[in-house]
Simulated assay, not measured.
Amino acid sequence: MPRHNETRHVPYTAEQMFDLVADVGRYSEFLPWVVATRIRTNSEAEMVADLVVGFKSLRETFTSKVNKNRPGRIAVDYLDGPLKYLHNEWHFRNDGKGGCEIDFSVDFSFRSRVFESLAGQVFDRALRKMTDSFEARADALYGAGEAGVSGSSSSSAHNAA
């Protein structure tokens, strides 16, 4: 059951980062492996969305419910697809200097023990690439802040078959 926790500081506000993460419909524009999205329902507080994730000839569709608590928290719970379960959370806190701290966590399990074992070998690197992609998207949308990204990044990964 892979788990990943990461904290980053970015030169953008909690509101800006909340808006970026909550804009699931645009994920295919900047997230690696996301090839398509479909928003089934969307309100200020909740969204149900499908993500089609692809790598080479493999394509899988994941349906998730996204709970939005502006501007401090986004929680994602898995509804349907190839996983056994998935839960991830984003927490955004303004730093009082125009930037914010982001805490990101994800916990999931594959239905297949073999696939979980294989994925565990690249899991941490793939999640770092994903969080780097959110940061690069923020730079593209909001312009790199003068302070730049202040490398207060920490993470831990856990993989148990």
Rank of each mutant, 00 (worst) to 15 (best):
E15M: 09
L127G: 02
F104T: 07
S57T: 12
L58D: 03
N67C: 08
H87R: 13
T61R: 13
Q16N: 10
P11R: 01
Q16C: 03
R26E: 14
S117P: 01
T7L: 06
A147G: 14
L58V: 15
H91Q: 13
R3L: 09
A136G: 10
G72P: 07
F30T: 11
L127I: 15
L86F: 06
W33Q: 09
S150P: 08
D132Q: 11
I102L: 00
K97Q: 15
V48Y: 06
E44W: 01
R59F: 10
F108C: 07
F115E: 05
Y12A: 01
F123R: 04
A147W: 07
P2H: 00
K68Q: 14
R93L: 03
G25E: 15
L20W: 02
V52T: 14
S156W: 08
E135Q: 12
V149C: 08
M1V: 13
V122R: 01
F62T: 08
T41N: 06
L141S: 14
E46F: 05
D80K: 15
G148S: 01
A138N: 12
I74R: 04
P2E: 09
G145L: 07
E135H: 06
G54R: 05
F30I: 05
V122D: 03
A14K: 10
T7H: 09
V53P: 02
T7R: 11
E29S: 14
G145F: 01
R128S: 09
G72R: 10
E60G: 05
V48K: 08
C100Q: 07
F62G: 00
G120D: 08
S152R: 08
N159G: 07
P82A: 03
R40I: 15
V106T: 07
F92I: 01
Y12E: 03
D124H: 05
G151R: 10
K65N: 14
E135A: 13
G54H: 00
A36C: 09
A161T: 12
E60D: 11
S117V: 02
L58R: 04
Y12C: 04
G151S: 09
F92Y: 12
V76P: 05
E146I: 10
G151D: 12
L118N: 04
N94R: 02
Y85K: 06
D95S: 03
Y12T: 04
R128C: 05
V21M: 01
D107W: 02
D107T: 12
N69A: 14
Q16L: 11
V149D: 03
L31H: 02
A45S: 12
A136L: 08
N88A: 04
F134S: 05
R59P: 01
F55W: 15
